[in-house]
Design a protein around this nucleic acid. Sequence first.
DNA 1: AGCATTTTGTACCGTTCAGTACAAATCAGA
DNA 2: TCTGATTTGTACTGAACGGTACAAAATGCT
Lengths: 202, 202
Amino acid sequence: MTKKVSIPAKGRPREFDREQALGQALKVFWSKGYEGASLTDLTAAMGINRPSLYAAFGDKESLFRAAVDRYEAERLSFIQRALDQPTALAVVESMLQGVVRLQTRPGTPAGCFMVQAALVTGDGAKGVCEELRSRRSAGEVALRKRLQRAKKEGDLSSDANPADLARYVSTVIRGLAVQAASGATSAELRRVVQLTLRAWPG
Amino acid sequence: MTKKVSIPAKGRPREFDREQALGQALKVFWSKGYEGASLTDLTAAMGINRPSLYAAFGDKESLFRAAVDRYEAERLSFIQRALDQPTALAVVESMLQGVVRLQTRPGTPAGCFMVQAALVTGDGAKGVCEELRSRRSAGEVALRKRLQRAKKEGDLSSDANPADLARYVSTVIRGLAVQAASGATSAELRRVVQLTLRAWPG
DNA sequence: AGCATTTTGTACCGTTCAGTACAAATCAGA
DNA sequence: TCTGATTTGTACTGAACGGTACAAAATGCT
């Protein structure tokens, strides 16, 4: 647990809160995508000017990567809590409900940052596109490992395929992201979750 | 059935095939997204120069809308065939399999044009973003109506909810799109389809 | 007070963007 | 071989892009 109480330092003190500004940048990338978010959009939302942005975060891609980390740390903590559930069914149920809550929460952009910030891009942004792809894959891998454990523990039927089940749940999660970005309500998506769970073995 | 045999015309004849060029533009938008596709990308893939593009298609947004129509007419015809299947289960099974085939076909970009070409955008492209959203919604509506008919015909159990089922299937379809865009194979996605169908009532 | 250090605001850089002016080229019809 | 109509290639436009130079302002340290 590291304190964040800004050590004195010696030059002119920064006039904005770095974490709060990063949070605003995250929202811009989240709602407009990496390519759709201009530096003008970003600095306006963050309440700072360009040199301050570059001094604090580096270039646009570095700022984006900081936003990815921030999203994961601040918004995806429910995933670990879901993985810690005692049964496989409880894990996926908790995960799906958490996804719906995150992606339809008022005050934050609809949909999933990891999907819509850079699902596909032009040549100049292939790096961030691949970064998000890799992070999405990591989520699916974590779920697969959890289901493999559940199968070993007898908590998941012996003829179930953890890899396929993890991919199925991940696919629904990505679909929920698109639906949320398109304006679906949380009530609608909760009913999708209910139907999704009917495919669960056992 | 209208013939396309290029009527005589009187000025200098066009040196490229409009439909073939549109097909190339579609692929560029499909793989890079609306914002990620520059006019330089487009003209290079189409094998024409800018004035030819503007004379034949209008501005970038008009070209994009023509590509949307082309995609729908050329790639989504399987949807109508799926809706024509005799039973509700056959409808969704046919539709899901068609989606997997389309989104993992070699020679065309991975994923779904309707999703990734403009899932979210900057302010300058909200029009095309909304256009795609509306087209996606139309697909879900068509499926819902088909399932409502199936319920009336007794082909879908009386306690099933067509709206929820249509949204569930649509959500999986959107998820398949994201997975395909991320590099999932058709074999992997077919197994997702199998699991999806296990949630089907009856 | 004076110096070193850092941030801030303005004003700018070169590049790329979507879109176009214009003249040469190629056709149909007279 | 003209004339009118259309397409083609080059070369360009103004605007927006990401990124930065620079001087003024604000701090800690001596």
